[in-house]
Amino acid sequence: TFELKGKVGKVVKIAEDHYLVESEGDKWIAYSDEKLSLGDRVMVVDVDGLKLKVKRIP
């Protein structure tokens, strides 16, 4: 299986209740415990079905 946990991506869209993150050339629906901005670099900390939980990284 394709393992996304630990992968790095970038926030490419902000929606009302989720983010769109591009990682490894694909776009994924993501959510975070912190507020993210367009262009933020993020790391995948968990995968919930087809949704990614991400956190901001420097």
Rank of each mutant, 00 (worst) to 15 (best):
G9K: 00
L38N: 09
V44W: 03
G6F: 02
E34Y: 05
K51D: 10
E22M: 06
I29W: 13
Y19H: 04
I14A: 11
G9N: 01
E34N: 06
H18C: 13
A15W: 12
G39Q: 12
D48M: 08
S23I: 15
R56F: 14
K13S: 11
Y19M: 13
K55G: 05
A30Q: 00
H18L: 13
K5M: 15
Y19V: 11
V21M: 13
D48G: 03
D48L: 11
K5W: 15
I14E: 09
Y31K: 12
K27V: 11
G6H: 01
E34W: 04
R56S: 08
G49H: 11
L52Y: 02
L36Q: 03
K7P: 01
L20K: 06
R41K: 05
E34R: 05
A15G: 11
M43I: 14
S23P: 02
D46I: 03
V12H: 06
L4T: 15
E16Q: 10
S37H: 09
V12L: 08
V47F: 09
M43C: 14
A15M: 10
S37G: 08
S32K: 13
E24Q: 04
D26G: 09
L36M: 07
V42H: 00
H18A: 10
D33M: 11
E22Y: 11
E24G: 03
E3L: 01
W28V: 03
K55I: 14
A30W: 01
Y31C: 14
K10V: 08
V8H: 04
A30F: 01
S37Q: 09
D40L: 06
G9L: 12
D40T: 11
V21D: 01
D46E: 05
M43G: 03
D17Q: 10
K27T: 13
G39T: 06
V47L: 14
K55Y: 04
L36R: 00
V47T: 04
K27P: 04
D46Q: 03
D17C: 13
S37D: 10
E24P: 03
L50H: 10
G39I: 04
I29S: 07
K7R: 11
A15L: 11
V45C: 04
Y19D: 01
G25Q: 05
I14G: 06
V44A: 03
D40M: 10
V54N: 00
I14F: 12
F2R: 15
S23Y: 02
V21L: 06
V21N: 01
L52A: 06
V11M: 03
Y19S: 09
V47I: 07
K35V: 09
K55P: 00
V12P: 00
K35Y: 07
K13Q: 07
A15F: 08
D48Q: 09
A15Q: 09
I14P: 03
K5T: 14
V45I: 10
L52W: 02
S37V: 11
K53I: 05
S37K: 06
R41L: 13
S37L: 11
D40E: 11
L38G: 05
Y19A: 07
L4W: 05
G25P: 04
A15S: 08
D40V: 09
V11S: 00
I29Y: 14
K7V: 06
K55E: 14
K7I: 04
V8R: 02
D46P: 01
G39C: 13
L36D: 00
P58R: 04
F2C: 15
V44H: 01
L38Y: 07
L52R: 01
L52T: 02
K10D: 08
Y31N: 13
G25W: 03
V54C: 05
W28E: 01
G25F: 04
